[in-house]
Amino acid sequence: MMHDHDENALSPELFAPADSIQALEDAAQGSGLSFWQDTARRLRSNKTACICMASVVILVAGSIIFPQISGYTVSEQDLLNINLGFFSEGHLFGTDEIGRDMFTRVWYGTGISLTIAFSAVLIDLLIGAVYGGISGYTGGRVDEMMMRIVDIIIGIPQLIIVILLMVVMKPGIATIIIAYSTVGWTGMARLVRGQVLKLRGSEYVLASRLLGASPARIIARDLLPNTLGIIIVELTLTIPSAIFTEAFLSYIGLGVQIPLASLGTLASDGASGFLLHPHLLMVPTVFLSATMLTFNLLGDALRDILDPRMRS
């Protein structure tokens, strides 16, 4: 009645009881990794994310170091050596129409653009987080009113307001950051408010479930990391938009002013002289696009990694 192909191999001793109920093996069940460990592991295995993060490090480090060691300053002119191309003697990326070294300028410009972008995004985070946090926490009519204000601000075309603000204030690094932040915080506000609402909801659910774990622990362990993740993704994806805004402003003359330089000013300078000296546009373009691309791809990768659905 049974079909055991190895009947001889079954000896009666095998049918004695096992020594003990075998270990309730659980730990090795694959989970048990904390949120951050799991995130770190996913991050490492995602090639795009790794390349992007390396790229960020290179850009930031380069923008700090290279202008110092290149041997030229940002505004040092050398009218004897104008419009040199790539790999010219002494100038890896050539010079511009008044002899300034492009290598120095482009790394310096990257630094300025990154500074503006990071600062603007961080201020957005601060304002947005506070505003959204208060709105979500207070709830009720206050929340509704605050969100309506946000709706209206979002309804107004942001770039136009930024341009107006730049007309009013004197163009410069600080004013660009201020102008951008004035209208850019709304996205973060909505996000934070949404998360705060979720947190509030869970607190009540937890309390009513009367489980042993305190709500604070569960918030800290599961919800907060999730929230942080979403915020990090939003920050990463907003950086390219800040860089773009700066570049745009520079193109219409409202950006960073001489003697400083940013990727935006370099690109717009290069665009006008493009027909005769393509490298003047190429160099800042590559850096500008690489920077924006890096943060966009990084944001995408982070979003995929932190997507709760992928974690089941």
């Binding site: 009645m1 049918f15 009881p17 096992a18």
Partner: peptide, 21 residues
Amino acid sequence: FAPRCHFCMQVCSQRQPPGFE
């Protein structure tokens, strides 16, 4: 099912049982 079975025998943690009719 062996790790969770109250009636686990030695053979159970060594081989898969066939279907018995």
